[in-house]
Design a protein around this nucleic acid. Structure first.
Lengths: 339, 339
DNA sequence: TACAGTTGGTCAAAATTAGTCCCATGTTTT
DNA sequence: AAAACATGGGACTAATTTTGACCAACTGTA
């Protein structure tokens, strides 16, 4: 699966396959991703008419790519194989492959993966979760130490992590303390979920986000904190999201004065607790224990996850000054915004 | 062009491409073969409705695979390339590739080429001519001596022979004298046509078909006849047709007694002036000067051309005892009959 | 039991396609 | 020169397919 020459020739005689392939691929992919579901749900999901879904699914059923039960439609093994084999072609057709390439070059990083659609939609977040989990499994080695930040994008991975042979020896490490009230999206919660999902161990770092100078120094001297700082130095893989500056400030419940200060300094994005401006320069950082940029640069791989058109500017800024060994998973909406 | 894996996977999602590809390929091929021609003519040609031709040709036109002028439709360079590249796929889809293989194995010969349709139709004969001429050019070498028999199938090549670099040194040799009245299909006429078409030289053998024993012996002693017999021994390529026994007897104006004799001996087919039975055994031969079976077997290549369902039995019989180095070009009608 | 979600069936309306014929024009043959 | 022929493009009605929107029966689940 790498040579589409016969497809490209065939397309000259049968131009309609392009749209057909895309349509059906999307539907099959959605069925595969969203498990058993019915016509109407699927139609809402993909923003197409029920009729269209019905037409295509009956065909997919005839082709034995899906099974139809009373709980809804489900993707067969054959369907999954077709999906896997046609994925590069689909990406090619949708121009996603090209956009991935362009972004990777623009940012000067290892690889960019674009998920069709927008992370705002359920469908894309499912695909995101599967894709990110696939990469994580691919990158992980015996005894890997994985630093994890919070955020909804990173959280999307959780449902799709599965135990793998090498997994019991890996360790998930909270890259920093929690933020705001959304407990379920905190780094601490996520590492425990991840670890549980794949039978690995984990290390949390419970600590307030805003510390006074004295408290900060005092905490840093604590043995338990010393230990996690040492761990940060040995991190193999960093798994993190990227946020917009105002969104993060909002979530952290920053004061109006602080927000104004951030704006004044030109902060547009946030990652690992660091705010950076449009040029990727760090303009502010939270005084808390967290993984340091130099640790990130030293790690073997960085898996960055962020999507949604509203984050486009923050992402572009972040990658002005990011680790080369980054693999970035984003969505079509953000990718289009950035190109 | 040899790996259709992506096509085969894609077909699972888009089963309709099969029929579409076949339909459009046929139309494009016909336009390419039959030169500039109009909708209605083309429709008759392919036995489809005018509407269908119209639909497909407008599409082909949009795809710039054909051009539409006032003399009719004509295949563009791009169209020709698509045609060439998709041909193996088309053969695969139509099952022709498989049938070719089966026949080649059944007959124990080098290669079988099946032309879509039936040689009775103009369209197929044009394709036959082009294909056969392509093979002839491929097989020919500097100084090749090519023995040629008569018949409508062999005659179909003439319009498509073109001068090639090595051609001036080759020599076309009439494999035997003329038959019947149809001058234009006689071996003698054909060799001169062929030679003229590709700027080669030729050798004719004008002689009655039926000789008395004395005349036969006398003729054989003639220096000019001796010369051509010597040429037969040095033939590199044999280009011949295969006929049914009764058809040939009819053409030769044989007497009822002779016909009865042939029937009695079980003759079903004819080639090079030899009649053979269902087992490929020679049961009768015309007393005239012509190329000998052993010369044929010694030649580098044999290009046999015969089609039409009525010839199926004769063909099968002939190949019971034919040279292994034969390349056989036939039509779909005969192929289906034989399988 | 009530409910939310599923498939498969149905059916009229809308849209598309198929099947013809015609015509002005250019080409070939007479 | 004239006539016969073949061409693409236009046009229009009938037939067919597609669409959109229901409803009934069924099945797990709360």
């Amino acid at each position: 699966m790498s040579d589409f020459s016969c497809y490209k020739v065939g397309r000259q005689l049968i131009p309609e396959i392009d749209v057909l392939l895309k349509k059906r691929f999307r539907i099959l992919q959605a069925i595969h991703a969203a498990g058993p579901l019915g016509r109407r749900t699927l139609a809402d999901f993909l923003h197409v008419t029920e009729r269209e879904v019905r037409n295509e699914t009956t065909l997919l059923h005839e082709q034995q790519l899906i099974e139809i039960g009373q709980k809804g439609m489900i993707c067969t093994q054959l369907g999954y194989e077709v999906l896997e084999q046609l994925k590069p072609l689909y990406y090619e057709l949708s121009g996603l492959a090209q956009k991935e390439q362009q972004l990777a070059e623009k940012f000067g990083i290892e690889r960019v993966i674009i998920i069709p659609g927008s992370f705002r939609s359920e469908a894309s977040r499912i695909l995101l979760g599967k894709e990110a989990s696939k990469w994580l499994v691919k990158l992980v080695q015996e005894g890997s130490k994985i630093a994890v930040t919070g955020g909804s994008s990173v959280a999307a991975i959780a449902p799709y992590l599965q135990p793998v042979d090498s997994m019991p020896s890996v360790k998930f490490i909270a890259a920093r303390g929690g933020i705001g009230e959304e407990m379920s999206l905190q780094a601490n919660i996520l590492v425990s979920q991840f670890a549980k999902a794949c039978h690995a161990s984990y290390k949390t770092l419970f600590m307030p986000e805003f510390l006074s100078e004295q408290a900060y120094v005092a905490m840093k001297a604590e043995p338990s904190v010393q230990e996690i700082i040492r761990l940060y130095e040995e991190v193999d893989i960093v798994l993190h999201g990227i946020g917009t500056a105002d969104e993060m400030a909002e979530k952290r419940g920053s004061s109006e004065a602080d927000k104004a200060l951030l704006t004044e300094k030109g902060a547009v994005g946030e990652a690992f607790g660091y705010y950076f401006d449009a040029e990727g320069r760090i303009v502010h950082q939270i005084r808390t224990i967290c993984i340091q940029p130099e640790h990130v640069k030293q790690s073997r791989y960085v898996l960055a996850i962020a999507g949604g058109e509203e984050k486009a500017k923050a992402i572009e800024a972040y990658f002005k000054n990011a680790a080369r060994q980054t693999i970035f998973i984003t969505d079509e909406a953000a990718a289009n915004e950035m190109l």
